[in-house]
């Protein structure tokens, strides 16, 4: 474990906590894409299949359970909670997320470390996570005013994978130059998708003005 990976995991955890607090405190999920949240549940389910078969560390197991539990509860709130589900922007959250999932699955069938169920599904989760934020970014462009919590959520979500990129560089130089193209390139694509959001987020933060994404 290195400081970059720990910072990445904590940033990721913080982003999810912020979203969960926003939904619970305001009883509203306005501006949040249910499609993206559902894709994240699929990402965690397909990535943590070895949760009960391979013990890596107490930290690893705990974090996996926390990520699974929080992401599933967010989807539950947005789908079934009587008050929260009324605030879901159903007519604006129209991104066809299975158009993202299917190519990722096909790509995982073609390009993977080894052809086993666990490994192909893990690879699928890596590819899917890279594009899972797209429905949320599209929704942000459509929704006129973005509330601070939602802006912070998306920012931290993007920042965590950027920290993971630094973690991979660090591990490459300190752990016998292990090359891991699949997570590296996917992580690069994932972080790049946030580039313009990062630009507008930092601009709004510096000018102390409301976050607005150009349509």
């Amino acid at each position: 474990m290195n400081v970059f990976r720990l910072a990445g995991d904590m940033t990721h955890l913080l982003s999810i906590i912020i979203l969960l607090l926003k939904i619970r405190a305001t009883k509203s999920c306005t501006g949040i894409s249910l499609k993206t949240q559902e894709l994240y549940v699929i990402v965690f389910l397909t990535r943590y299949l070895d949760l009960f078969t391979k013990y890596i560390s107490f930290y690893n197991t705990t974090m996996k359970l926390v990520f699974l539990g929080t992401s599933i509860s967010i989807v539950w709130y947005m789908r079934y909670h009587k008050v929260v589900k009324q605030t879901y922007n159903k007519d604006q959250d129209t991104f066809r997320h299975y158009f993202l999932a299917i190519p990722c699955f096909l790509l995982a069938l073609l390009i993977h470390h080894e052809f086993t169920v666990i490994e192909v599904l893990w690879t699928f989760s890596i590819y899917l996570e890279a594009v899972a934020i797209l429905p949320q970014l599209v929704l942000l462009q459509r929704s006129r005013n973005i509330d601070n919590l939602t802006g912070n959520y998306v920012f931290l979500l993007g920042a965590y994978r950027a920290l993971y990129l630094v973690n991979w560089v660090y591990r490459y130089f300190t752990e016998n130059h292990l090359v891991r193209w699949i997570p590296w390139l996917s992580g690069l694509v994932q972080t790049t998708l946030y580039a313009d959001f990062f630009y507008y987020y930092i601009k709004s933060w510096k000018n102390n003005e409301k976050l607005q994404l150009p349509a």
Partner: peptide
């Protein structure tokens, strides 16, 4: 143990 690249990460 067969070291899976990246399998010790979240």
């Amino acid at each position: 143990r067969h070291y899976y690249p990246g399998k010790d990460e979240l």
